[in-house]
Amino acid sequence: MTGLQEGARWRVVLWDFDGTLANTSGDVWGSLRYAAGRRGGSFVGGFDERDENLALPMDVIYASLCPSPDPAALPSFEEDVRVHYRSISAHPETDLYPGMRELLEELRTRGVRSRIVTNKPQGALLRILDLKGWRGLFDGWVCADSDDGVELSKAQMAARAMNAESASPDECVMVGDSWGDVVGARATGVHSVAVTYGDGDVDRLLCEEPDQVAENVEQLREILLGSSRDA
């Protein structure tokens, strides 16, 4: 592992995006409320105040609207959500988790590369990176729809990111907040770090037995770079 400064354990970090690098839930709910409002509906009973509900299938989220929506209109609801999130929303509530920018910058100074591997559509990801001025924090990205007409699994995304860096599995670490991140890491022979500060299902995440767990960004930094800081 050439080029790494003391303390860095891996040459490449493969980052999940939502719930790992950035808290995006507020703006996802914003797009869902937009689509609901176009149909004269709304979420009730605090449904849209529980981020774990974002992991539910879209048909379940749609069925929770009040008044009860027409099941046949689900495709148009999904399209309104997509259009709003990808083209209309300025993502005002999306932000990196506290300490994450500093960690990304420190990784770079230590010679560690950062690549995003995410199920988020590439158009939506790049729009957020541009709106927030975050592109320069990363060395690249692979999204589930990076291949037209083919949906990539997390393992396939990780493999592509490693190939782009000419990196072997033992030179890489996957960081994510969902069980799928751990499964993808295991399938590619990559060390996994699960973060529990995101909006993923923590019980399901830990059930996959990740190699390490971080409850906050500071713990994540210690895993990736060690406990010492430059003076």
Rank of each mutant, 00 (worst) to 15 (best):
V13Q: 02
E6I: 13
A8Q: 04
G30A: 11
R11N: 11
G19T: 04
L14P: 11
V12M: 03
R9V: 08
A22S: 02
L4W: 10
T2E: 03
G19W: 13
T20S: 04
T2H: 14
A8H: 02
G7W: 08
E6M: 14
A22H: 14
G26Y: 12
Q5I: 09
W10P: 14
W15C: 03
W10R: 09
D18V: 07
G3W: 15
W10I: 00
R11H: 12
G30P: 02
W29K: 14
G19K: 12
G7V: 07
R11Q: 13
F17S: 10
L21F: 13
V13E: 11
G19H: 11
D18G: 01
L21K: 13
R11E: 04
D27P: 03
W10D: 08
G30M: 08
S31K: 08
G30K: 12
S31G: 05
L21M: 07
V13K: 12
N23H: 13
S31Q: 10
A8T: 02
N23A: 03
E6K: 06
S25F: 14
A22T: 04
G7F: 11
N23Y: 08
G19M: 13
W10N: 06
T2N: 11
L21I: 06
N23K: 12
R11T: 00
F17I: 14
V12Q: 07
D16I: 07
W10G: 03
D18R: 02
D16W: 05
V28A: 05
V13I: 00
G26K: 15
A8N: 02
W10F: 05
T24C: 01
V13P: 03
D18C: 01
L21G: 08
G19E: 06
A22V: 08
T2Y: 14
S31Y: 05
L14T: 09
F17E: 10
T24R: 02
T20K: 10
V13H: 05
T20Y: 13
T2S: 00
F17W: 15
D27M: 02
W15T: 03
G7C: 07
D18E: 05
T20M: 06
L21Y: 15
W15Q: 05
G26D: 09
S31V: 01
D18S: 09
A8D: 03
T20E: 08
L14K: 14
A22G: 05
V13D: 07
W29A: 00
L14W: 09
F17N: 12
